[in-house]
Amino acid sequence: MAVLEVRNLTIRFGGLVAVNNVTLHVDEGKIVGLIGPNGAGKTTIFNLVTGVYNPTRGEIHYRGRSLVGMKPHQVASLGVVRTFQNIRLFKNLTVYENVRTAAHMGAKYSLLDGLFHTPRYHMYESEISEWSENLLRLLKLDARRADIASSLPYGVQRRLEIARALALRPSLLLLDEPAAGMNPQECRELISFIREIRDMFGLTIFLIEHHMDVAMSVSERMYVLNFGELLAEGTPSEIQNDRRVIEAYLGEEERDAQG
């Protein structure tokens, strides 16, 4: 069953068509990759799905519900949660505070409960404390719980951003270039980490990746985007042998070599 369904998605910025007529779907429990050269419109698709941009045309359905016109916080509260290409943590807060802040959704108490610290407040607060502690333990962040987010090494910041996203108990997780800036060893760890959290939390994962090998080994299904249009889709091995994909990537390397 498709968790996320995108049909004929198009967005124009002035004269530039950043995403053109893209149709794709992400099935329940799968890890789906979205790859493509720089500027192909991958992050734009994430921004469209999460309500940062409104599409010029097209539909986005999450579990049968249209996401078009929703604000980012509404999309997130439905269970579609993302990370960012250039990590956006609450920089001056500790690891624990980052996760606990994101766990606010589980705390169903009112402003008055918050002002007077009613029994209801204490009940939900102890619940989200427990949940946050659990998350930190599961993601092996508990040793760093009191560290300030901006002081963490890059790889740990990435892990914290994912932990923060998981604090919302999402069902669809969108990861924007999780392997950016990682060395091959870290990339391998990341691949097993992504599979682990998928199984542990029963997630569906849709990820953008620039590293071809990471994308190939972690994804169960892939979409290739080029110049805002869908170029190919299929299993990693199908994509690997697709002539158009090879051309798009070789073309890019040639351009890189010249530039």
């Binding site: 604000k71 980012p72 949660v81 920089k91 606010h104 923060r164 919302l168």
Partner: peptide, 9 residues
């Protein structure tokens, strides 16, 4: 970070 805040609902 307002954008990060929105992203966590």
């Amino acid at each position: 970070d307002e954008i990060a805040a929105q992203s966590v609902g």
